[in-house]
Design a protein around this nucleic acid. Structure first.
Lengths: 347, 347
DNA sequence: ATGAAAGCGCTAACAT
DNA sequence: ATGTTAGCGCTTTCAT
């Protein structure tokens, strides 16, 4: 391995000078800089990050903790974050927690040991009995920007989507189509995103003077299988809903499967609004009407925020929390409900 | 920051002893070990990886370079790799190249500087005029395991899928259904995977004595838009194919879109076989018949191979290249072609 | 079983 | 503008 002393020797200068040209510290004559650059190229010298980090306390790497990179929402967020972070020569350690807070804690310790400069954290659902973990999070010596999911902490840097607004938009759309029996399928984890989407649903119903039917509110874990079984329970009700709002992508797939099994057509027999917008959803049938989140932008913004904090500190941040707006994409999975004829029509 | 000397002081031992217990080097009396462990816990000591790496030349991190994490195939591979790598306490730096070899080169230099212990490389397509890069790759001081896409190098550690077999299976399936006018849409990049899938298509046609119609072979870039336009050109032919095999997921979405625009139904009017199997494909319509790759297993296997190399070196590896088999998942996007009646029927 | 001490490759304060 | 040198926190050899 070639090191800085080798370069210095070859160029006929001291290591300090070499270091200066590597780090563009200035105070180097043009001609000596040239010599050094040549030596570097000839020897194929690459500075050793570990050594540099030991001294500077900077690693130029940030950690990103995601619940499930297999959920297509997160790769988009990742790319958004990477696109801004790479401009500052940062690199990302990606950690998958499988929605397990203990796994998250484990990764956090590792990231702390590896001295990443900052962390982009999309939290796993909190475990009861694990509350002291939040304190630890709050006092971690590494800057954290929370992404998508907001923990119960005051005044922390975070980038989230307006989930209440998303839930409200979805429900209101269904209401305007004439639906009155609107169910919601959401995730049982104590996660802000799902709680808020439910809140948006409730708000919309309230605002439109529709009473809330608790049996229309179903919660479960975010898997296809759960979507199927929750779908079944909804579809087999006597007073079956005419529309379903699903706040999770995988459960939406499950619902669609449940509809098929029950030989129900969407949107003819029942309307569905999903969450998150992926490329195939606008092509395959039924084309899903969904609340689309600005995933890429969320990643970008969070990364940008983190870098800003890394540079200037947290304290003089005007607003620590930024909220991005989702967008309702109206496609074909919702039909008009005509009360008089007691059936559904296409819009 | 609490460091090893602090722990030593608190426990009343030397730093050497602390280091021994941390690294489980043995030769420490049970009682002293206990003291050290307590000190570590009380002080909340976390060893500094940078310092350790500087000394040991190991970073316990590996780099993974992927062309596009937004392609749902790669997150699955990532998870597979992570699942084995984490058992050995490695962490993964994920790098997205956007299918750009220059971007890949840039990341490779960074990974080299950061002294990752090994690299999982899913190559971007090679650029002409950039051939000397392969030499550099070959002499990199960091072990590389190639994944999915095989570069033109001899005898390198690699984990790939049997793409010839995949292309053969897809084409043969169509043939058995009675199709004779089978088109293929594939990716124009010089990538083994697509070249081989095309080869499988050709082989199958040859083996069944069907002459190859060059105008049925379309190549383009792997995007939805390109799928649409290539689809158009195929569908507007006088002698339009009765079946299309698409070797890329995004282009498959594009094809389905093109079918809709042309008011053609799948599988009634035309059959389609795609590549890669994602959860929604078995629910939304038309349910795609696809060649499913063992993505997770590919990630696992590659990571396992890399770790083995990290431990034992490359040289005494029995077989450096492992080939995993894909599986044809037959669903509903292919119909039977009845030549006599000159139309398609469902199977 | 334990400790003292020499580096690992680099940066930066200080000297010139 | 350039050089000398003291660490950064850790592992490991060599004594004891």
């Amino acid at each position: 391995m070639v090191k800085i002393t080798d370069v210095a020797k070859k160029a006929g200068v001291s290591v300090a000078t070499v270091s200066r040209v590597i780090n563009r510290r200035g105070n180097v004559r043009k001609s000596t800089e040239q010599k050094v650059l040549e030596a570097i190229k000839e020897l194929n010298y690459i500075p050793n990050f570990s050594a540099r980090s030991l001294k500077t306390e900077k690693t130029l790497t940030i950690g990103m903790i995601v619940p499930d990179i297999t959920n297509p929402f997160f790769p988009i967020v990742f790319r958004g974050a990477e696109s801004v972070v790479k401009q500052e020569d940062y690199t990302i350690i990606l950690c998958n927690t499988f929605e397990d807070e203990y796994e998250e804690m484990r990764y956090l310790s590792i990231l702390e040991a590896k001295k990443v400069d900052g962390i982009l954290l999309i939290k796993a659902p909190g475990r009861s009995g694990n509350e002291q973990y939040m304190e630890k999070l709050n006092t971690l010596p590494i800057p954290i920007v929370y992404l998508d999911r907001l923990p119960k902490l005051q005044d922390i840097p975070a980038v989230v989507a307006d989930n209440i607004g998303g839930g409200y938009a979805a429900t209101t759309h269904l209401l305007k189509l004439g639906h009155r029996k609107i169910a919601i399928i959401t995730v049982q984890y104590p996660l802000t995103v799902h709680l808020e989407r439910l809140q948006g649903y409730v708000n919309s119903l309230r605002d439109h003077n529709i009473s809330i039917n608790k049996s229309y509110i179903k919660k479960g874990i975010p898997t296809i299988e759960e979507g199927i079984s929750l779908g079944h329970s909804l579809l087999s009700m006597k007073d079956r809903p005419t529309a379903i709002f699903v706040t999770n992508h995988k459960m939406t797939i499950g619902i669609m499967r449940a509809l098929e099994i029950a030989a129900l057509e969407c949107p003819k027999d029942i309307s569905v609004v999903g969450y998150d917008d992926f490329d195939w959803e606008s092509v395959f049938h039924p084309r899903l009407t969904v609340v689309a989140q600005p995933a890429y932008q969320m990643g970008e913004t969070a990364a940008w925020l983190l870098i800003k904090i890394l540079r200037d500190g947290v304290d003089d941040l005007p607003n620590k929390k930024v909220i991005l707006s989702p967008e309702l994409k109206i496609r074909e999975s919702c039909g008009i409900y005509c009360q008089s004829k007691s059936k559904l029509k296409m819009p």
